[in-house]
Structure formats: C-alpha cells, structure tokens
Design a binder for these strands. Structure first.
Lengths: 127, 127
DNA sequence: CTTGACCTTCCAGTTACTGGAAGACCTATG
DNA sequence: CATAGGTCTTCCAGTAACTGGAAGGTCAAG
C-alpha cells in the first residue's frame, strides 16, 4: 500500500500520515526503491488506532503511550484504564466549562434585541 | 498603571497583556520615560473585555471584530447578536461531540476491569 | 514520449500564547 | 551612595498537531 491508500484505509489525511511517520509515531513498514512509503495491514491498523484515539481527544503523546501498551503483550488492563480514566476526567471538566459558557452566552443572546439600536447586553456585559 | 497592575486588574497574565499590545489588540495608553507600558482605566477595561470574550471562546480575530463593534458608535446590536449567535451554535455542536466522546469513553472505562490481566476492552476497541 | 497524478523532502505558517535570556530600571535598606 | 532584588524591556524560540506549498523525482496510461 502506498501512502494515499494507507491514508484512505485508515481515514487520515495523507499529510497526517506523513507527519506521524516523521515524528516516529507510525513508521511505514518499508520503502519502495523510489523511496515511497509502503504500509501493510499492521501499520494501517496502527494508523486507525491513532485516528480513533485522537477522536477521543487523546494527545499524540498519549497515543504514543497507548501504542506502547497496545503492542506490549505484558501490559495490564489497569495501565490502560488509568490513561483512559484520566482522559475521561479531563473531558468532564471540559464539559462543565462548555456548559457554563453556553448558559452565559445563550442568556445574553436571548436578552439582546438584535435590532438597529446600538445598546446591546452582550457588549454591555463584555465591556 | 504599569503592566503588572493592569494584568492583575484585568485578570490576564502579564505575558498575555504584552502579547495583546504586540499584536495591536490592546495597546497601552502611553509609555513611561523608561519605556514602560502604562495602562489607564479605559485600556484596562478593554483588556477585561477581551478576557471575557476569550472565556466565551471567541478567537482573537473575533475579539478584534467585537472590539471594533464596541468602539464604533454606529454599530447595531443586530451585528453583535449575529456574531454571538454564530459562536453559540458552534458551542452547541462542540457540546454534542464532547458528549458522544464522553459516552463512548466512559462505557469503555466501565467495561475495563483494570486489573493485572492483559485483556482490555479499551485496547480492543481502539485496535 | 508525454501528460498528469502521485510521491518525496524541506520550509514556513497556523493559534494564542508561554518561557527564557540579556539587559535596563526602580525601590528599599544599610 | 551602593547594592540587592524585583520589575520592566525586547527578542528569540518553542508549544500542539498539523497544514500548505514549492521544487523535483516517479509511475501508469495512451
């Protein structure tokens, strides 16, 4: 598989696949004579793994950590759960912040008449 | 007010106040003979304005836009409401995504025993 | 053989800061 | 008046995770 096939198959942009190779996160299984990156099923699986983990908001550093666990036969599920739980906590904090943001802003938008006159509670609040 | 007082009063880090001056978002009202940035009540209000807007997830570019509206006497509340409403929609989309993320991940974390054994539904799912 | 799509590397830019170094300045104390 | 330590300045570099683009090599079809 060349890079565009691997990209399509893993659901990542080509640029990102190349980037992951550059930073040593997922290296191609080999190179063609012309220097083209070649991916096999295993490496594409890793790319998919990363893509999924990224949709879960795992940082690339955490992905690297997870990859190590993924490939390590001796790891315990406790190690994995620890990382995932930490991520979950962070997501929950984010959710609360976003909710507060939403409540305040929606309150202000509702209070703003949105007509031609310049007085507006959003601006009053912000200023 | 020197920069650290302005920072404290506006609730922003000193570095950020300096940064906002650099990018021309909020310039100090003047400079001392020694070149120190001097802020007055009006400029500090603008800093607070930006800080609030940023907590609402407005980008700096959007803050600039809001600042223009704020300082332009002829702006209508409709313009301001339009920008804020757009932002609110984005926040709602983000909330949905974050909720989905949370549901999936919490499901996995619950399903993972987190013990000494290597089998782990989180890894199974990601891989 | 040519055309056009695809591949390579490398460099720069994105967002909104943040950290740190080098050096000027300001304030308080002995 | 000297000095110590805190604050200010500018400038440079780095962050995260890509993304865009230029210059040039490669490959498959017609």
């Amino acid at each position: 598989m060349n890079i565009s096939e691997a990209a399509k198959s893993s659901g990542l942009p080509v640029k990102t696949v190349r980037y992951y190779a550059d930073i040593g996160l997922v290296e191609p299984s080999s190179r063609s004579d012309a220097g083209y990156r070649i991916y096999n099923d295993a490496t594409v699986r890793r790319l998919s793994f990363i893509r999924r983990a990224r949709t879960f908001d795992f940082s690339v550093a955490e992905c690297r950590e997870l990859m190590d666990l993924y490939q390590n036969q001796d790891r315990t599920s406790a190690e994995v759960k620890k990382i995932a739980s930490k991520r979950l906590e962070e997501i929950e904090i984010k959710q609360k912040e976003l909710q507060a943001l939403h409540d305040d802003l929606s309150h202000l938008v509702k209070a703003c008449r949105g007509d031609e006159r310049p007085d507006c509670p959003i601006i009053d609040f912000l200023g």
